[in-house]
């Protein structure tokens, strides 16, 4: 053994000592600095999961509101806003739950908040109630006519255009402008109150358009005619022509 040690060149001995010192320092530093809970459930500090869970909440959740405001809650849940959480409009209110007198939730007023959802925007899904604020009862505050907890329109809308503004706009510049909506869509009176449950009818057959547009039709001469038997018989009219704006390509 001693002979073997003597055989090792002097340089190597000196370097080995240095290497051993570096390695030992590294090992000691690692064991001192590594957090005790690191790697218990994965390559991270286990306590960090708890830290993430400990963050403070701001939104109480609508079930919490119902504990005190049961009447309001019931009204809301019977109307069109039944899917809305209270805090959509009233803002984060956990503080209010904890100290009801000190923190009051916001109550949006005026004409700016409701249009956040209800202003007309062509990107919004069709059927979602939308208005154009500029022309919809200008200067009137939304909640004077609509109860936000039960937002049925104060009067049932008279015109179809009140809700179907986009279609009505298109139709008003088309050659179909003089045809009333009800000529093509049979609409029960109940549709005005429960629009999704009582849907208006839609034409189903080519012959419906043919009443005016077929060669044999007894309509005004200026109306364009086609031969119903030879003109693309495999399709129904509205697969190619948009009935509310037939001029469109």
């Amino acid at each position: 053994m001693k002979k073997f040690l003597q055989k090792i060149p002097e340089q190597v001995k000196r370097l080995s000592i240095l290497l051993v010192v570096v390695v030992i320092v590294f090992i000691i530093a690692t064991s001192l600095l590594t957090p005790k809970d690191f790697g218990l459930i994965g390559h991270f500090r286990a306590s960090s999961v708890q830290n993430n869970a400990n963050k403070k909440m701001q939104y109480a959740g609508q079930e919490t509101c119902s504990d005190c405001h049961e009447d309001m809650w019931k009204t809301k849940n019977a109307g069109y806003h039944k899917n809305l959480s209270c805090e959509v409009c009233h803002g984060p209110s956990l503080n209010h739950v904890n100290e009801p007198d000190q923190f009051k939730p916001v109550k949006p007023k005026g004409r700016t908040f409701c249009p956040v959802c209800h202003e007309y925007n062509p990107s919004r899904p069709t059927g979602f109630p939308q208005i154009v604020t500029a022309s919809h009862n200008p200067r009137k505050i939304c909640i004077t006519c609509h109860n936000p907890h039960n937002p049925t329109p104060p009067q049932t809308p008279k015109d179809c255009s009140a809700c179907h503004a986009e279609i009505s706009n298109a139709k008003s510049v088309s050659s179909h402008m003089d045809i009333p909506c009800t000529k093509c869509h049979k609409t029960s009176a109940k549709h005005r109150l429960s629009p999704r449950e009582f849907l208006p009818t839609k034409p189903t057959q080519r012959e419906f358009c043919g009443q005016c547009h077929s060669k044999e039709a007894k309509s005004d001469e200026s109306i364009p005619r086609i031969n119903m038997t030879t003109h693309e018989p495999r399709y129904v009219c509205w697969q190619c022509h948009y009935p509310h704006l037939p001029e469109a390509q």
């Binding site: 909440m57 899917n83 984060p92 979602f128």
Partner: peptide, 23 residues
């Protein structure tokens, strides 16, 4: 985003889901 981890561990919905008016 943490899916509002501090909420879901308490059986609450994430804030964005809670306030979404159209589900």
């Amino acid at each position: 985003c943490t899916f509002c981890y501090h909420r879901i561990v308490q059986d609450k919905l994430p804030a964005c889901v809670e306030v979404c008016p159209t589900q």
